[in-house]
Design a protein around this nucleic acid. Structure first.
Lengths: 132, 132
DNA sequence: GTAATTATCGTATTTAAATGCGTAAATGTA
DNA sequence: TACATTTACGCATTTAAATACGATAATTAC
């Protein structure tokens, strides 16, 4: 069995984490998010740090600390989150990263570019607000 | 930079290899395919062996040996090839392989199931014949 | 001001995929 | 029959990405 559209655990934590945080009045800490997402607190911590740096979250250390939203839920779309964690999605490049294509016309582009574009557009339409 | 729809080199070799073979009158050997696809002959050999076992190719050892098509180009679709190499595409399972979803309604399904289905259908429509 | 709590950060480990290699088996050619 | 060619197969190595860990710094409460 395989997955053709794969989401890393990091991306999943980012999306789930933001939604969980958005649903709460008060900040959520790493342990809380790790519990609710069935993941390790180490991994959650790493992902949250990136979301803080990227401007999506406030972080608060010390007792009763945790993470809270810096932007409005309707202003956070899935594409931005995805790209914050995974890097920008490539479009139009050779899916095999070959410098020279042995084919007159790239086959893979036909297969992956179409799907990449559709997925990208779909992610852009999804916002945190829709999942509160 | 990242790729959201990722094709392994193995899957790429399978698709490119089959098309190259389909375009030729005579059998193509491993070295030839490796050259044309910019990959290692070891990897090509491994992939071709799986396509032979799966019934897509004849193989012929010895001088002037190589691989040739066992099915008609219009009878080989990309989905079957993909699944021969990568395993069947999962549909409807938790994209994070978690036994229990912490959410009332799975967010990820919404994101990945839709795309997986579309990609799957698209691959099914593509046949080797269309790339001769 | 001390202890408890919590995020931060750099590094280590794990994992999966890709790649490389060596030997065996089969086949055609001279 | 001998030899060159080519696939088959199992295992070893390498590599890159994902994930886990441990020490440190900040903050709060008492």
């Amino acid at each position: 069995m395989s997955k053709i559209v794969s989401l890393s655990e990091a991306a999943s934590i980012a999306l789930h984490g933001l939604i969980l945080i958005a649903r709460e009045k008060e900040g959520l800490n790493v342990i809380h998010i790790a519990d609710r997402t069935n993941t390790s607190k180490h991994h959650v911590a790493k992902v949250m740090q990136r979301l803080v740096k990227a401007g999506y979250l406030y972080s608060q250390r010390g007792p009763n600390g945790g993470f809270s939203l810096k932007k409005k839920p309707e202003e956070i779309n899935f594409l931005d989150i995805y790209e914050t964690i995974e890097g920008n999605i490539e479009i139009g490049t050779c899916p095999m990263d070959k410098p020279i294509c042995p084919f007159d016309k790239c086959i893979m582009n036909n297969v992956t570019n179409k799907m990449t574009n559709e997925f990208r557009n779909y992610l852009k339409e999804q916002t945190i607000e829709q999942y509160l």
